[in-house]
């Protein structure tokens, strides 16, 4: 188990190194003039020259990437202008050309809002999805199954931004049950945190629980037709025990995979949700950076999101081993 973990972590690290090379290559090497692109909209020739200097674009590529990686691992110092220095401790992802702030600080500022959305929504969509999938599978062909499958199909076909606008229209503008969504730290006020996050949570839960409901239902129905379930039934186990101990246990493994990957994606920024509800999270930071062509911030958000996805992958594999003896023994 330990050796497997070490191997997975090393593999994940390799993927991240390749991701960092691809990101570096795409954003700093491929463009005709990276300094011009990095410079953003309010750009002057002096600024371009300065950026070219601080980014060391006159150096060979290997050294440039080395400095980029060095910044992430041990930190680096930027020369700003001729004398001023900008200290950038590890993990250094550079500083924003727009606000002159360190990218890592920007990421830290925006992380809590995204974390709130991701955790709240994922608990909600996992529970709702599992529950409706289980009920569907146990009542196969009954009206409640058809109803929950219809809801799932609707959810799977709807767009986040469309649902978000409809919910906001109903609950904020017409019924006035909620304020316009926004982020308030739970340490300041729990009730404001919940009411501010309610619509993003509901929107994501409605759309994503659909996938879980379909997966749970299909998985459970498949396991239910296996011989060992018939055996369990023949030896007189209660239905409740069969359904929860045997059927659900086997059906849950693929769900764990999808859940891990969804959570990993969400932690990197619920881009569309944050955009529609105007919530200052990582996804919103990324969309702002893209519209300002603020290169270091773009690179920072992409790298952080990739870290979350790689970690999620490793955690999923480990959970797989715990849940599935076949994987553990092979």
């Amino acid at each position: 188990m330990f050796r497997y973990l070490v191997r997975r972590v090393i593999g994940g690290g390799l993927v991240l190194i390749i991701v960092s090379m691809v990101v570096f290559g795409l954003f700093y090497v491929l463009p005709a003039d990276p300094a011009r692109l990095a410079c953003g909209k309010a750009c002057t020739p002096e600024l371009i020259a300065e950026i070219r200097h601080t980014l060391e674009l006159d150096q060979p590529l290997t050294i440039q990437y080395g400095r980029f990686a060095e910044g992430i691992l041990v930190g680096r110092t930027y020369l700003k202008g001729s004398t001023a220095q900008l200290n950038c401790p590890a993990p250094c992802l550079g500083y924003s050309y727009d606000t002159d702030e360190l990218v890592t600080n920007l990421l830290k500022d925006r992380a809590p809002a995204t974390l709130s959305i991701a955790l709240g929504a994922s608990i909600l969509f996992l529970l709702v999805g599992l529950a409706s999938g289980i009920i569907s599978a146990l009542r196969r062909g009954k009206w409640i199954d058809k109803f929950s499958q219809g809801v799932a199909l609707t959810g799977a076909s709807l767009q986040i931004y469309f649902v978000a606008l409809i919910l906001q229209f109903i609950f904020v503008d017409k019924l006035q049950w909620l304020h316009t969504p926004g982020y308030v730290s739970p340490f300041t006020s729990v009730s404001q945190w919940v009411t501010g996050m309610a619509l993003p949570w509901l929107t994501l839960a409605f759309l994503l629980s659909a996938i879980y409901a379909r997966l749970t239902r299909a998985g459970m129905l498949e396991v239910m037709s296996e011989d060992y379930i018939r055996t369990a039934r023949a030896k007189g186990l209660t239905l409740r025990r069969i359904n929860f101990k045997h059927v659900l246990r086997s059906a849950i493994t693929p769900i764990v995979t999808v859940f891990g990957l969804d959570l990993g994606q969400l932690l990197g920024g619920a881009v569309i949700t944050e955009y529609v509800f105007n919530i200052p999270g990582l996804g919103r930071l990324a969309t702002e950076a893209v519209s300002n062509v603020d290169l270091p911030v773009i690179v920072g958000t992409v790298m952080l999101a990739a870290v979350f996805i790689v970690i999620a992958n490793i955690v999923v594999d480990l959970l797989y081993m715990v849940l599935d003896p076949k994987v553990r023994l092979s």
């Binding site: 691809v22 491929l30 005709a32 692109l37 920024g269 992409v302 996805i309």
Partner: peptide
């Protein structure tokens, strides 16, 4: 590796860069 990229975020980020490359 492609699946390890945050797809929407990356798609959003790479668009101006690719555009710059193609335009140049």
């Amino acid at each position: 590796i492609v699946l390890a990229f945050p797809s929407i975020l990356f798609a959003l980020a790479i668009t101006p860069v690719l555009e710059n490359v193609l335009e140049s």
